[in-house]
Each structure stands twice: as structure tokens, then as C-alpha cells.
């Protein structure tokens, strides 16, 4: 099963996604962390997330680029967080995919999905604050928007989390939890 969890910053989407993984009951759980620890603020953010999931039995795999090379065989459920970081890394890191970002990321998702039973992807809504950004940032929005659409198209469940409340745009949360 493929699940897309999206939402704004600070919306509680991570917590929702982590709890959903617990309810899918397909162990072992793997957390693919995509945030590159650039600075103190990133470290704090990463520490906060580690703390949030410490009781939830996740192994952690750090993957900043090249999802297609990741070996996740043996895991029942994979939680990838967050697509917005992975896309930025692929676009801007030296060994990233650059302009091939969209294709490379989607191939990476296929690659992970083939190895596990459930894949839950956390993404981010960065599309509606009405601020005109520079061309490069708009390219980032375009790539992530395209990737989000592609994931949602393939997903069994798509949820947008609003202040910890899941709004289901595709599929049924109850069915997902009960049919697994």
C-alpha cells in the first residue's frame, strides 16, 4: 500500500504518519530520514523527530539523495520523511539529480515500494502563501508539486493534515487500517 501524508509546516503531519504506520502493523518499521543536517536548527529539528518516534520501534536510514540506491529489503513498512527535503537535496546537492529530479525521485519511490509492503510518504504543502518567489524557488515548488501529484495518483490513501486533523482526499482511512 502507498500512502501520501501532506500538510503545512507545524500541522502535525509527522505525528499522524508515525501513528498510521503503527496501525498498519507490518513490522519491522523503517524511517527514511531525508533532512540534511546543515546547521544547528536542522539538528534540533532532527532531534525533535527522533524523540517523537523513539517509542515507536523505527530503525532509521539517512538518505539525502539517491533513493534508488537504498536497500530497505526485509522491512514491512517504510516511512519516508520528508519529500520536500529529498527534492531540495536532489536539486541542490552536488551529487543530486538536478533537472532530472522529478523522474529520479519517482523511480526511487518505485524502488522502495517494490521492497516493502507499505510505504508512507510525508510531503509538504508549500504552494499557497501568495508570495512571489524567485525563479529557482518556483522551480522547486513546481518539482515538488509534480511529485506530490504523481504520488497521490498512485496512492491508496492521500491525507492532508490540518492542525493534527486528517482530511482524506483519496481512499478511506478506516479501510486502510482494517484491511491490512
Amino acid at each position: 500500500m502507498l500512502v501520501l501524508v501532506t500538510g503545512g509546516s507545524g500541522s502535525g503531519k509527522s505525528e499522524f504518519a508515525e501513528n498510521l504506520v503503527q496501525q498498519l502493523h507490518r513490522k519491522p518499521f523503517l524511517y527514511i530520514a531525508t533532512m540534511y543536517p546543515f546547521d544547528e536548527e536542522c539538528h534540533k529539528r532532527i532531534a525533535r523527530h527522533r524523540d517523537m518516534r523513539k517509542e515507536k520501534q523505527f530503525d532509521t536510514l539517512e538518505c539525502y539523495t539517491g533513493l534508488k540506491q537504498a536497500d530497505v529489503s526485509g522491512y514491512g513498512t517504510v516511512l519516508l520523511e520528508c519529500m520536500s527535503n529529498l527534492v531540495a537535496n536532489e536539486m541542490y546537492q552536488e551529487n543530486g539529480a538536478g533537472e532530472q529530479c522529478v523522474e529520479v525521485v519517482l523511480e526511487g519511490i518505485d524502488h522502495i515500494q517494490k521492497q516493502c509492503e507499505h510505504l508512507v510518504i510525508v510531503s509538504n504543502e508549500i504552494f499557497s502563501d501568495g508570495i512571489p518567489y524567485e525563479e529557482e524557488t518556483e522551480r522547486y515548488q513546481r518539482y515538488l508539486g509534480k511529485i506530490n501529484q504523481e504520488i497521490a495518483r498512485r496512492a491508496d490513501l492521500t491525507a492532508e493534515v490540518v492542525y493534527s486533523i486528517p482530511l482524506i482526499h483519496k481512499g478511506s482511512l478506516e479501510e486502510c487500517i482494517h484491511t491490512v
Partner: peptide, 25 residues
């Protein structure tokens, strides 16, 4: 409902929208 844009460059702005989100959750 904040937090639906690209991560702000300003540190306080980032902290503010994050904090507002957590409180609203």
C-alpha cells in the same frame, strides 16, 4: 492557517509559523 508556503528565510518567521502550528495542534 499558516505554514503553506516555502520555509521563510528569516529565523523568527520560521520559528513563528512553527510555533503557531504546534499551538494550534
Amino acid at each position: 492557517e499558516l505554514g503553506y508556503g516555502v520555509v521563510p528565510i528569516d529565523r523568527f518567521d520560521r520559528a513563528y509559523r512553527e510555533k503557531t502550528g504546534r499551538i494550534c495542534c
